[in-house]
Simulated scan of single mutants.
Amino acid sequence: MSTFRKRFWANKTAVVCSILLLMLCLVAIFAPILAPHDPTEIFQNNRMEGSSSEFLLGTDQFGRDLLSRVIYGARVSLLVGISAVMVSVFFGTLFGLIAGYFGRWIDGFIMRVMDVLFAFPEILLALAIVAALGPGTFNTIMAIGIVNIPIFTRTVRGAVLSIKNLEFVESARAIGASTPRILFKEIFPNVTAPLLVQSSLAISGAILTESALSFLGLGIQPPDPSWGGMISEARRYMELAPGMIIWPCVAMTITILSCNMFGDAVRDILDPRHRGK
């Protein structure tokens, strides 16, 4: 752990991205304090205004404060992204451990189901699930979570296959350790590194998918603020009020880029080939 900390602080990309992500999380948590206005409050006389002392980023077509909506949109996007990945990690880890450890027909059955899910493009599968369940925050989380389960299943399965026959696992079997103990006490701690990297990358994908669903009207429903929903509403007013589409795009770009670069940096830190450098 001390080696990881040293290499983490020596990696400038990891440090900068972790600071950005921490700031985004703090903005989402303290949105009611940081937002100057209620994100759904309408100012009839201030529609599509530019930047001013009262509305720093301007207002939208209904006179709602853009800064407040972007801040609350961060809360929605991070909530959906992190929650969806947690769903994916839980079921993907469980299926991956079972498939990799037991093998044979169990492995074949689980992986064929994952292949069926993989056969569909992510956004189309998410659209189909949301269309079946109905729009809303919870259903959006479940749809994105289900879509990402095959990725984590394959990640964990591959790690399990590489370590299940090593000496420490064989020793656990020899002393009569139960299967659950072998899976969760011996094998699982050794697959957390690839899970951490994949999770950080999956969060950015989940945020992007949520934005796409909200853009199409099947994700977070108005008047709740969502970056994708804000972009969808702003496309009609790009020439009159370009800030309506610029600011949610900037916020989403920074978030997704930070998650991807953080995941790449952590992968490099945990890569054994770089430990001697």
Rank of each mutant, 00 (worst) to 15 (best):
D60L: 07
Q61M: 01
F62L: 14
G63H: 05
G63M: 00
G63V: 05
R64K: 05
R64S: 01
R64N: 07
L66E: 01
L67M: 10
S68N: 08
V70W: 00
V70N: 06
I71R: 04
Y72E: 01
Y72A: 02
G73Y: 00
G73N: 01
G73P: 02
R75E: 06
S77T: 11
S77F: 04
L78G: 06
L79Q: 05
V80H: 05
V80S: 03
V80M: 11
G81Q: 00
I82P: 01
I82W: 10
S83K: 07
A84R: 00
A84H: 07
M86R: 00
M86D: 00
V87P: 03
V87N: 04
V87G: 01
V89C: 06
F91E: 09
F91L: 13
G92M: 13
T93P: 12
F95A: 14
G96K: 12
L97Y: 04
L97C: 04
I98R: 12
I98F: 11
G100D: 00
F102L: 12
F102G: 04
G103M: 09
G103W: 12
R104E: 10
R104A: 08
W105E: 12
G108W: 04
G108C: 06
R112W: 05
R112C: 15
V113C: 14
V113Y: 08
D115A: 06
V116D: 08
V116Y: 09
F118T: 04
F118C: 11
A119K: 05
P121Y: 00
I123N: 04
L124P: 03
L125G: 06
L125E: 05
A126M: 11
L127G: 05
A128R: 13
A128L: 15
V130T: 09
A131M: 15
L133M: 14
G136P: 02
G136N: 03
T137G: 06
T137F: 13
N139M: 14
N139T: 14
N139W: 09
T140W: 07
T140A: 13
A143K: 11
A143V: 05
V147T: 12
V147D: 01
N148K: 09
I149P: 00
I149D: 01
I151C: 03
I151V: 13
F152N: 02
F152L: 11
R154D: 00
T155L: 15
T155K: 07
T155A: 12
T155F: 03
T155S: 14
V156N: 01
V156F: 09
V156T: 06
R157V: 02
G158L: 07
A159T: 08
A159E: 10
V160F: 11
V160I: 08
L161E: 04
S162G: 06
I163G: 03
K164F: 09
K164A: 10
N165L: 12
F168K: 08
F168N: 02
F168V: 07
V169M: 04
V169W: 08
E170S: 14
S171H: 07
S171L: 15
R173T: 10
I175V: 14
I175R: 13
I175Q: 08
G176D: 09
T179G: 01
P180F: 05
P180R: 02
R181K: 14
R181T: 10
L183Y: 06
